[in-house]
Design a protein around this nucleic acid. Structure first.
Lengths: 224, 224
DNA sequence: CGAATATAATAGTAATACTATCATAATTGA
DNA sequence: TCAATTATGATAGTATTACTATTATATTCG
């Protein structure tokens, strides 16, 4: 798995950046430090000025790579979903049994992230936290329709489609495969947030994982 | 129902405002116009300066009621969940059958909002749209733990608890009643968003409602 | 080595998110 | 009823944000 992914660049929509951050050391530093900084101070408090000093430079350098922090967030979350998609595809493609395949997919989506040394400048553990806390903000905007048309959310939607296909393979008679797939992914993020901040409205915790909840849910919803 | 609610003031956490907007004509105008304006230009573009001119005054007047726009958003969404809670309680309290009661609750949560003339200065249809588009932003912040401790999200959490209780009454053996309840409410908002902006990853549309999806889901998950 | 390109530093602008002050209008209660 | 309180409205000011533009200095690459 690691070798396979080793040479793979996770591809992100070209219009999300002005200059590909993967193409230079400075670009990688921007990505690396933005992940650390957004985690530390939150997306609202995050500015290119602060990022500039985090990379030992100033804002003008960052602006050469990204138009604004919204685009940078779209870049980071797209990368995350692209990475998740690869994991999903590689880890499930050899599974023939539809039921087992979907269960594996749910497990992958819900599984706590552990450090992946394949992409040295990207801390996937922290990036996952950014996705939990900030991904919604990337589409809950007035510009969502334009940006969707532009294709900025296509990796995310493609991932949902992959899950949807797996759902449909388990139970072709089920009428809500898309909604279930989008709900599974959304719920994996939402329950992770609740576990951390609103413990009283979730059953998920150190002992009960989100995948326990969702595996049970899916097993009951779909006919085999 | 209307008469019953007619004299009822939906109560919102006192610390969310500096001066109770329900206590004056100007305060009500602030609430009324903020709902219109946030809908029109989105929460990011919304400022107290713009709100000031919308109410025919200026920002200083608004600042006397709310510390900042984040608190105002918390006020609006709390009001919405309080209003939803009343509807839920009144419309379900006379239902004895647990199954029927939970189904009614889901229907209430998912049902498209229609104008409610009880609260003249509050446009519930638009407020619902604000909740769909902006509610997440009210808790996806660095300050969520403090604000949660302060009680700013208690109405929302109480609503989830009410749904949870209904779930538990239908099937006491079900292990994930809290997570299911929070997922039902979150999904009602999320699918409403998808229906509008990311149609390809939902089955919900003009013909198929979100409650169709969730009623089916719950009926399969819970043992009767 | 010299030209092109990338990076860094500085300056400047309009808008935001406030705080503070003061004048005036409305209300209310002795 | 009128003085006092309180609410509202207008103006000004500050630090920060979210940029754009320009220029100087490195770096690299043919």
């Amino acid at each position: 798995m690691k070798q396979l992914l080793g040479n793979l660049k996770i591809s992100v929509h070209e219009k999300l950046y002005l200059k590909d951050p993967e193409s230079s050391a400075l670009g990688k530093k921007i990505i690396e430090q933005s992940i650390l900084l957004i985690n530390e101070i939150g997306f609202e408090g995050f500015t290119f000025k602060k990022l500039g000093s985090a990379i030992g430079s100033n804002e003008s350098s960052v602006y050469r790579y990204f138009e604004n922090k919204h685009k940078l967030l779209l870049y980071l979350t797209s990368w995350y979903w692209g990475w998740m998609e690869y994991r999903l595809v590689f880890e499930t493609h050899s599974i023939a049994d539809p039921d087992e395949k979907l269960n594996k997919a749910i497990e992958i989506i819900c599984r706590p992230i552990v450090e992946d040394s394949t992409y040295v400048h990207i801390n996937e553990v922290l990036l996952n936290k950014i996705v939990v806390n900030e991904f919604s903000k990337s589409y809950l905007t007035k510009e969502v329709d334009e940006e969707n048309k532009e294709g900025y959310f296509s990796i995310y939607k493609r991932l949902v489609h992959r899950v949807e296909e797996m759902v449909a393979e388990v139970d072709p008679s089920y009428h809500f495969s898309s909604s279930l797939a989008s709900t599974l992914i959304e719920t994996s993020l939402h329950q992770q947030f609740l576990k951390e901040h609103f413990k009283s409205i979730t059953n998920c915790n150190d002992k009960v994982s989100t995948s326990d909840f969702l595996l049970d849910l899916v097993s009951k919803i779909l006919k085999k």
